[in-house]
Design a protein around this nucleic acid. Structure first.
Lengths: 195, 195
DNA sequence: GGGCCGCCTTAACCTGGGTTAAGCCCCGAG
DNA sequence: CTCGGGGCTTAACCCAGGTTAAGGCGGCCC
């Protein structure tokens, strides 16, 4: 087994026999990305995804008007990929970019399908992943519905404390759905109140 | 088989042997709700959900400040339930209310688990449901990130044409994340431009 | 060292949506 | 028929955040 820590992590999320994990490892390959390198770009087939071994990524979508908004940040022990497009077997509309020098363990969707055919644990895992992703998106929806930008910022740092100092402020703004100017204002307003 | 139309609908979404469907029907019961009646209220266990046979529902969440926001509308051939809470086995924080006299086919989560143990088709269905829900929430997230309230309204009516005349305007506003006053303004602005 | 670039801040002005409050229209109960 | 209430609209005023533009600051390359 080459990635025992990752195995622990995944098995805790959804039980997985060691033997199956070893099979999966054999299908994966490690990819290193420098800062600013893209794991996925718009138009690419969205049939691959990765577990982050090291580093931070941002999932960006560029709107029709050319504005960037950020769907998610991903760091160690999380999945990176264009999940919605993968499910719909459509090309990626998402850019996934490393914010630091990073390493990822890459899987191909069709390899996972093969594993699924062999052992039910993979389907269970896939289901849990879908459910977990759903819960997170619903939480985010709730934040847009009843929180102001300032409250969303506060919650962002509670839920993403591990990203402190690792993501530029403008990207936090694009995640919150505001401009970097507005975010800067909010931050300085809070600073003043804190004195 | 008591609900052949529903069976067709579900089987098209995820293949399902007739025999399994008949078993499921035996575990379900039909519930009628008058206008304004609640299918689920906050604090209820979220372990039941239903297929809408007839009618329209709104899933409401009341924020800490006492403001209502609407997470979803559900009509014929859709699932109603507090899905996130069901997955987390926590009590419902969602109110689900009939906007018309409605009929629902009610299932209990633990009955579904029993069916899952008997035939893999149920797990496959559950997975597809999770994935589909995810895709919809991600789309909604995107709308909050890069669309103005007016554009969200436009898209709302494209995607919910079947709700025309069936949901009050204030509820549409609460779905879009704005007040009914703001929505009324947007509508009249559009009316003027259309002349 | 100097110049440049990436990132952040600040300011001035504009606009969309929130808040409050008044008023309208329709409908159903008495 | 009248009254009251629910749902929608309009208006006046306010504020958060968008837009545009200028400038600051640190790091990096030459």
């Amino acid at each position: 087994m080459k990635y025992p820590k990752l195995f622990e992590h995944i098995a805790a999320f959804s039980p997985l026999p060691e033997g199956e994990w070893v099979k999966a490892e054999a299908l994966a390959r490690e990819q290193a990305l420098e800062k600013r390198a893209l794991f996925l770009r718009p138009g690419d087939p969205a049939d691959r995804f990765g577990w982050v071994l090291q580093g931070v990524f941002r999932a960006v979508r560029v709107s029709a008007r050319g504005e960037e908004s950020i769907k998610a940040f991903r760091a160690e022990n999380q999945l990176v990929g264009a999940y919605a497009e993968l499910l719909q077997r459509s090309p990626s509309m998402t850019t996934i970019e490393a914010l630091e020098p990073s390493r990822v363990l890459v899987f191909h969707a069709r390899d996972l399908e093969a594993l699924e055919a062999g052992h039910a644990c993979w389907s269970r895992l896939a289901r849990r992943v879908a459910e977990q992703h759903y819960i997170l998106k619903e939480r985010r929806e709730q934040e847009f519905l009843d929180l102001s930008a300032e409250e969303r910022l506060e919650r962002f740092w509670v839920e993403h404390a591990h990203l402190h100092g690792r993501v530029p402020q403008r990207d936090v703004a694009a995640y919150l759905g505001i401009t970097e100017v507005a975010l800067s204002r909010i931050v300085s307003r809070r600073r003043k109140r804190a004195e």
